[in-house]
Design a binder for these strands. Sequence first.
RNA 1: GAGCCAUUAGCUCAGCUGGUAGAGCACCGGACUUUUAAUCCGGGUGUCCCGCGUUCGAAUCGCGGAUGGCUCACCA
Length: 493
Amino acid sequence: MAEEHNEHQLPLEELMKIRRAKLEDLYKQGINPYGERFERTHLAREIIDHFDQLAETETRIAGRIMSFRTHGKASFADLADQSGRIQLYIRVDQVGEAKYEQFCKLDIGDVVAVYGRIFRTRRGEISVEVYDFLMMAKSLRPLPDKWYGLKDVEIRYRQRYLDLIVNPDVRKVFETRSRIIQALRGYLLERGFLEVETPMLNVIAGGATARPFVTYHNALDMDLYMRIAPELYLKRLLVGGFERVFEIGKNFRNEGISTKHNPEFTSVEIYQAYADASDMMKLTEELVAYIAQEVLGTTEVQFGDYTVNLAPPWPRLPMLEAVRQYAGVDLAGLSDAEARAAAREKGLEIDPDASYAQVLEELFDTYVEPNLIQPVFITDYPVEISPLAKRKKDNPQLTERFEPFVVTWEIGNGFSELNDPIDQLDRFRKQVEKRESGDEEAHMMDEDFIVALEYGMPPAGGLGIGIDRLVMLLTNSRSIRDVILFPHMRPKG
RNA sequence: GAGCCAUUAGCUCAGCUGGUAGAGCACCGGACUUUUAAUCCGGGUGUCCCGCGUUCGAAUCGCGGAUGGCUCACCA
């Protein structure tokens, strides 16, 4: 049975067996294949960038072997560290037969530390001639193809480390993501905003219209929700006297997965006391333009076939006006029934008891959204779908709310925060009614939040930005999975 | 949740109207002291995603399933 198994070995098993044999050899030679602390003097990039000063000097570098070109008594290899790649050169008459042979027995994927001399080859390639090297980690599995890289998206996401090793562009996206968040944080701190953290485990999942994940606390013997937004906690902080706060963090929504949706995603929410929606629009356009400038060096962004200019100011377009322009339907002053009729006339399928606001949303999604390429603020959302936003002074059916759109996506949401506890309570009650009639996404009653408002919350502007989508926009990424290191995947059956 | 498509060597991919599986890289052996997708000589290492069926015969056709991708629905 066992013998038969050996005869019909899988290629992968055979490749791994060879590497394990090399591992055993290293131990036999008294070499630890899994090394320790090593003090580097340079990264690959530094050597290449400062070759003029570094030529013929000694260096200590470390990284992963990415390829080999052996030539008998002298050989080449490429070494990759976090900064990039550099070529290694080794000669038997420099290091001796034993060391040379040990080098030639390295595998692609092995992590090594090198003592050597910086020089340029005859063909002009900046290289390090190896004087000595140490094993840092023996690699026991073969890496994906060095030329074609790794394309299987399932492996790319499930084993992101492989994707990062062999696909350099992927690394760049995540470096850019980090710089975007750094620029965002820097911009806000600079303007006196305080960075805070609020609970991810919520007794009530509030602050957004979404289905939450439910989890369970053993000691308390109760269900808890993963937060769907930090909004209601951040506004409690406004009550507490923090007048400018922001939080960067994960939200969790128990909804479908798509190229634009991951069950956990990162947002920034920003609150500024004594400001309103128009202040937050200014903040939005300036913040996004600043990030683009810092990270890309320009506010002109290429996304697919589009060139988008993020420089402020962005136009403001009321939702009703947008629907009039793009759908050719004027819903102003219509009743629910009239609105439904108008939408049906356009050929939309409309639920018989859809409200005016639902019809408006439907028309907007179908006819307006696909046209919003250049950045624009859609404003004046109906109160029915904006339960946390202040009403417009001249029209209580609408709110001082806006959503920034770019390349057809909604990248954020902001408004003048409702600070009237009585109106807020009323809005919660309406949401609870929806919930009880089966709308699992409707808001829950948050009495503690009402209590907080009853103490008095200063009027404030609030803003949320979906960071993943912002990163997609600024890295020309088509799928949210390309900007999240470990996107959600179904467990392997 | 629905529709369409995909799954073949470690990786990237061929494989015709059904005849029993191939290439490049990687890997193994050999040559080569400045190469760079090194080159040259030799070696194919496989549960063709899984199961059932049709058939003399299935990677190929049918049905069911798994996983993934895209589109739609919901949302940020």
